[in-house]
Design a protein around this nucleic acid. Sequence first.
RNA 1: GGCAGGUUGCCCGAGUGGCCAAAGGGAGCGGUCUGUAAAAUCGUCGGCUUAGCCUACGUUGGUUCGAAUCCAACACCUGCCA
Length: 422
Amino acid sequence: MNTVLDELKWRGLLVESTDEEALAGHLAAGAVTFYVGFDPTAPSIHIGNLVQLMVARILQRAGHKPLILVGGSTGMIGDPKATSERVLNSPDTVAQWVERIRAQVEKYVDFSGDNAARIVNNLDWTGPMSVLDFLREIGKHFPVNRMLAREVVRHRLEEGISYTEFSYVLLQSLDYLELYRSCGCTLQFGGSDQWGNITAGVELIRRVEGARVHAMATPLITKADGSKFGKTESGTIWLDPAMTSPYALHQFFLNAEDEKVVEYLKVFSDRSLEEIAELDRQTREAPQRRAAQKALADDVTALVHGPAERDAAVQAADAIFGRSDLRELPESVLNDVAAEIGGVQLEANGDLPTVVDVLAAGGVVPSKSAARRAITEGGAYVNNQRVTDPEARLAEYDLLHGRYVIVRRGKRTVGAVSIRRS
RNA sequence: GGCAGGUUGCCCGAGUGGCCAAAGGGAGCGGUCUGUAAAAUCGUCGGCUUAGCCUACGUUGGUUCGAAUCCAACACCUGCCA
């Protein structure tokens, strides 16, 4: 019988932990209450955060009880970055983001049954705490000499670090202590960049309560060249459909490098070891079919946005990249495609707009200069036909079903524009 | 507090009066090749109503026909001295 730690390991989700043997014994002994936190540093979580949510799901499936913490207090302070001091967000902004993130994380864990998940907000216990209590009860256990030795802090000593950010680790440690006391939480995990903050909490509980609690860390997911995963030309891949469309999310995973796709499948999909091995085999035999990439993209899109959005994303991709002539697509499919890839309207009074105008309106280029450049470089397409004249204007013939135009820059950046004539 | 040096486009970095929308590199983007991969290679890389114009070399003001380049003040950074 495989243990939950074994699963985390073969999925490559466990890079660091406190005493592994003790942790394995603890997890085997019964339901463990564990926690993972998300700070509101943006209005949405992103695919990097999804790694933690996947771990939470695996633990919950194994019978353990999730506490998903949303950082209403820690988000007000800001975890120190190695590079520079953060700008504080206003309490209103943080409160709004907390609500949005709470709604998002709820989708990934189960709130029913014996090991039902719970959402907690650290502002609930940090907010009412007085400065004096904080300094006496928490601060007293943090030797500054040790805090100064931490890697992030060392990086920042040259550049400078405020007392505010310097104190962040105390807040996160306090969270673990609080959840240990109030919920019997004995396991915290997070990204490996959080390891210092996490172990500080373990240490605090040991000093204050004399108890031995546990911690794990997940790896930093990277691309084949070692660069950061989860960024594209248009920025971070968010889980909020208004910020990153389901189509864009699907495309992101569909374009995963061969070298990395199996690793991503293990992390971002619930598929079994056997299924993944089979997809791996298929991808090695016929890489051009991209069986693993398709499975990965489909799984993640369904998990994050639901099966209907997954199907819509697949359909939109088929329409755009498939062999069929766009002109032959039924209007209903075109409507769906436009909705899926985020279509926009463009008013046309009198003459039909120029290609430059529709490229810019469709959002596939950042400016009209860039649109002209794209045409000159041979990278601009209207309805999958390359356009070579920077002065070109749309003709009636270009309007699909009398109004739609599908614009594309390069191979993959597409937009739908619906022309409305007045 | 004193002295010296610095602040250039997304990043690094050259440029000391006109030939500067600013060398070179990196990142990004496009073409080719492929599989809507990776690598390679060629091209591109402020904006606009695009043979022209506008904005931009820390900020503000000045000198000049003309300033990223000279002058003044201010802000910030680095080093040395106290």
